[in-house]
Each structure stands twice: as C-alpha cells, then as structure tokens.
C-alpha cells in the first residue's frame, strides 16, 4: 500500500468525525469531494438532474456508512463506490440512461467548460467517460480505477489514453466548427 497522501489523511479524518456525528465534517467532506463525485455521477447518468440526486444520495449514504469505514488512506475510492451504487440504483429505477438533450448546466459553467463537458458526454463511450472522470477529476490512480470498475489495469490505461485522444479530436472539431 502506498503512503497516505495528505488529502487522503484529511478526508479520512472527516469521515471518522462524520461517524461520530460531526455535521461540520460532512460539510467539509462535501466541499473537498463534490466535484469528483458529481462528475463521476454525471459520467454514469449523463443527466444533470440525476447526477444531482446521486450527489445527495452519496453523502447521505456516506453518513450512514461512516461508522463502518476503515481508514486505509483510500477515502476517495470508498466514497466513489458509494456514488457508483447510488447511481446504479437510480439508473435501475429509470431502467436506462436518460436521453442526452436535457442538459441544464449551472450558471457557473463557462462556454469553455460547456464545450469540455459536452465532449465528455457526447464524444466518449460509457467506460471512457467514467475513467476520465475518475482520473482527471477525482484523482484516482489507474490501478484504483481498475479495482472500482472491475477492469484490468491494462484496459484502464489503454481506454484512458484512447479517451483523451478522442476528446482532443472532438474538441478540435467543435472549435473548428465554431461551436
């Protein structure tokens, strides 16, 4: 096991405090991790409202599960596993992923952001999206992504590099078309 990164230790502390019923720890955990959880949820649901629901489900589930959390320096992987399960229950409820057109971005999203997000959603396959969200946003190591998604390391590596290649091409094309 690799040494704890400062981030990991900090998050471990929040989760431990959350287990003891510390409300502030939940807020701190949310602030440090919500963009990772959200982007992963979005990569699974492809629907902003669903992803928002998953975001809420994830932190409430995390609060319930915190007492069983064993700190081992991998709090992100733990949190994202909860997020994944929350997203899968939502999707099962819906039976399938929602159509892509209903995208309703936050006002904080710039034109450039929108371009990047929409290329992620439209230009990549499901696993590619998840892998990119988990690595580029959540900062998970490829090996951890493999464990989370049940994929061999080699597959994660090749899909990741392929996904970035695709994204670059997609963005180039979008810019060329003056999108």
């Amino acid at each position: 096991m690799t040494a704890l990164s400062p981030d990991g230790q900090e998050l471990d502390r929040y989760i431990t405090a959350l287990a003891a019923g510390d409300r502030e720890a939940l807020a701190a955990l949310y602030q440090r991790t919500s963009s990772a959880v959200y982007s992963f949820a979005l990569s699974l649901c492809r629907h902003t409202q669903d992803a928002e629901d998953v975001l809420q489900d994830t932190y409430l589930q995390a609060a319930l599960a915190a007492e069983r959390y064993v700190p081992q320096g991998r709090p992100m992987a733990w949190l994202l596993t909860i997020a994944r399960n929350a997203a899968l229950s939502r999707l099962r409820l819906r039976q399938r992923t929602a159509p892509l057109e209903e995208v309703d971005w936050e006002p904080t999203v710039t034109d450039e952001d929108r371009l990047v997000l929409e290329s992620l959603l439209a230009g990549l396959g499901e696993q590619e999206r998840q892998i990119v969200a988990l690595h580029a946003v959540a900062g998970l190591k490829h090996r951890e992504i493999g464990e989370l998604l049940g994929l061999p390391l080699a597959t994660v590596l090749s899909k990741y590099s392929r996904a970035l290649k695709k994204l670059r091409a997609y963005l180039r094309e979008e810019v060329a078309h003056g999108a």
């Binding site: 409300r23 939940l26 807020a27 982007s39 975001l55 409430l60 990119v132 670059r168």
Partner: peptide
C-alpha cells in the same frame, strides 16, 4: 492541460446542494 480543463469544468458544473444535504442529514440523524 486537457486534464486541468476537465477538472475545472467539473468544478464549475457541480451544483451547490450542501444546504439541502445538511438538512436531509439532520432528518436522518
């Protein structure tokens, strides 16, 4: 650079629902 842009876009896109989560948490408690 591409990873940085993705992370930035994700940071901007996440809705701020902390208050909603905290009040649901209070109920749960």
């Amino acid at each position: 650079e591409l990873e940085r842009r993705i992370a930035q876009a994700a940071g901007h896109a996440v809705p701020d629902i902390l208050d909603k989560i905290l009040s649901a948490y209070d109920e749960q408690q």
